[in-house]
Structure formats: C-alpha cells, structure tokens
Design a protein around this nucleic acid. Structure first.
Lengths: 199, 199
DNA sequence: ACGTTACGAGTCTGACCCGTATCGTATTTC
DNA sequence: GAAATACGATACGGGTCAGACTCGTAACGT
C-alpha cells in the first residue's frame, strides 16, 4: 500500500499547471508591454491569461504576492566567469548587468525602482536578485588582489559600485543616449583598472 | 493710451497666483509622501491644495501636463565648482548628484525611472535636467586634461558615467545598503582618478 | 452698476477595479 | 456513481477616479 506520507493527495480535480504558467506569463507580458506595477489589474491579467479571476485568487492572496512570484521568474542565470583573466571576468560580469535571459526583463526593471523603496518585500526581493551577482564580482576582485593584479588597499565594495553603476544607469535609466552600450563594459572596466590620472 | 501690445489684459477676475502655487506644492508633497505617479489623482491634489477640481482643469490639460510643470520646479540649482582643484571639483559635482535644494526631490526621483522610458515628454524633461549637470562635469574633466592632471586619451563621456553611476545607483536605487553615502563621492572620485590596478 | 472671469465646493455620469460568490462544467479519487 | 475540487464565465456590492457641469461668491475692468 502507499505510505501515508507518500500520498497526501487531495481528492477532487487538481489545479491546472497550465493555468499557473498562463497567469505568470500574462503578468510578465503586461508589464513588459508598458503597464506599470500599480496600473496592473488582476482583471487584466485574468483576461490576458484566458483565466477566471477566481483561479488567480485561489493561488495568490493578491497582486503583491502574484508579482513577487512572477518577478522571481525573471532572475535569469548567473554569468560564469572563466577565471583566467581578472580583466576579462570583470568585463563579462559588467556586461551581464541588466542583461537577463528573458528579454522582457529589460523593460520591467525600471518599473521596480520606485517599488523597491516603498515596500520591504520588494526591497528584499530586489536584494536577493542582485546580491549573488555582487558576490560573484566580489570574488573576482578578491582573486585579483590575491594574484597581485589589483592593489590590496582598494575598497572592494566601492569598486563594485564603480563597475556596476555606469552600466546600470545606462541600461535602466538611459542616462546618456549617446553612449554606446555595446562597448561600454570593456571601456568601464579598463577605465576603472587604469584610472584617469596622468602618471 | 496703453498700446495694444502692452495690455492684452483680459477682463474679469484674474487667476489666483496662490492657487497655482498651492496646486504645484500639493502635487510635490503628495509625491514626496509616497504616492506614485499614477496613483496620484487630480482629486487628491485638489483636496490637498484646498482648491476645486475645476481650478486645476482650467490650468492644465490633465495629470501629465501638471506633472511636467511640477517636476520642473524640482530642478534645483547647479552646483558651482570652485575651479581650483580638479579633484575637489569632481567631489563637489559627484556629491551633488541626486541632492537637490528641495528635499522632496530625493523621494520623487526614483518614481521617474519608469516614466522616463515610456513617455517621450518625460524623457526630454529628464534629459533637460541632467544635461546641464553633465556639461558642468564635462568642463571640469576637459580642464583637467588641459592642465595635464588627467590623461589626454580618456573618454570624457565614459568617465562621466563612471563618476555619476555609482552615486546614482546608491542614491536612487539603494543599490548596496551597507555603502556609506556620506563618504562615497570622495571615494568614487579618488578610485576613478587612481585606478585599481597595481603599478 | 454691470459684464466677465475666477474661485471653492460640490454633483453627476461613466469608467474601471477589487474581492467574493455563484453559475454549469470538467476532472479527479474512492 | 458519488463526493470533492478545479475550471472559465459572469454578476455583484463597494470603492475610486476622470471630466464636465452647477452652484453661490469674489475680484477685476469699464
């Protein structure tokens, strides 16, 4: 016989996995199409997903809970530095900033900026996404110090901000429309490595 | 007699300047208190300003037009570099990023990130605010090159992103909560000046 | 005095939305 | 086949808001 712990299966029709998917996808689609977080309505999501509202409320407590789950899908995979050259690893990591597997992510990211500072939940989600990436860069910098490629007296945290900031304001805020995004990672890394002062 | 061009004065009660002020102020207050751009309603603004809704519609076509006018007030004044030391001037300019005269600006800025990429009007407003500041920094960097303090082969535009980015992600996105904002301008400028590579 | 325009306050219609409930139907276990 | 649960659809009451409108009043020119 099946053990009791093995089959806590409830009777009745099981929840549709396709509905789960459709709801999440509809949410991300709508966000990517330009809807802002609070303009997003459960009704719109339900319609877009081809699903009844009740089906959404059966799974999530409200819009916030749904959004949290939906945004988790966007995380994407971490870039994997090769480990040969510190400079090349940094270029790889800087180039990966704001570049997710899901093309919708680029459109959605700017929307999170306001939310991050108003909701503790979303701040935590945001930090949980970026902190592993920060850790990756931190390790490369530490390796650079150990190998003697980077000075030992640099502030690693400030250096990470130095490398990340320019890329982020360009990708998320379109800070300077004339700046070439393609070559930016290389140029940022090299500038930070060499400094700009005459010697 | 008064010349025709001199007195295009219309009859009737003139518009109240105090109402103009009150409406703009109420808008900025509500934004600074945490309301997001689209959660902001004309009704709320009218109530807060102690003004009838019609008084607002008489002046602006809608929420967008009002917002554009209101945000223009936040520009603040440009920091004035002393012109003695390039390093000190850069510290001043970097420290001024995201620091406006109006304390409400700091709370409002993150809300603009999504809007900037969706409305051409707001993108232009955003650029019109930051481009004179960019120009200021550009001039300091050029002076540095002329004086021989900075290398002649640096890319000035990339360098500006290098200096601005870290400060902006910290002030607007709270990128790394552990980073000390107070000392950041100095540390960013010095790091960019010296580079992080061993020599 | 009189016409004109603005004022604050309020009303009204038509949207849109939330969250819940209720349909008839479909899918599962026992 | 019966009980249980899910499904999409739709209806509901309660809420907010946009915009246009209406009051009675206030401020300005002639």
């Amino acid at each position: 016989m099946t053990s009791t712990a093995d089959a806590p299966r409830s009777p009745g029709r099981p929840r549709s996995i396709r509905a789960d998917e459709a709801i999440i996808e509809a949410t991300l689609d709508l966000l990517a199409e330009g809807s802002t977080i609070e303009a997003l309505s459960i009704e719109a999501i339900a319609t877009r997903a081809g699903v009844g509202k009740a089906t959404i409320y059966r799974r999530w407590a409200g819009k916030d809970a749904l959004l949290l789950d939906a945004l988790r899908r966007l995380k994407g995979v971490l870039a994997q530095p090769a480990g040969h050259s510190v400079r090349d690893d940094l270029v790889l990591l800087v180039g990966a900033i704001g570049k997710n597997v899901d093309p919708r992510a680029a459109k959605i990211m700017p929307c999170l900026a306001p939310a991050v500072n108003r909701s503790a939940d979303q701040f935590q989600l945001y930090q949980s996404i970026i902190s592993p990436r920060r850790q990756l860069m931190r390790e490369v910098l530490r390796r650079g110090i150990d190998e003697g490629v980077l000075r030992a007296d640099i502030d690693v945290e400030v250096t990470m901000a130095l490398l990340t900031g320019p890329m982020l304001i360009q990708r998320v805020l379109q800070w300077n429309p004339d700046l070439d995004e393609q070559s930016l990672p290389e140029r940022v890394v090299d500038a930070v490595l060499e400094g700009i002062r005459t010697r």
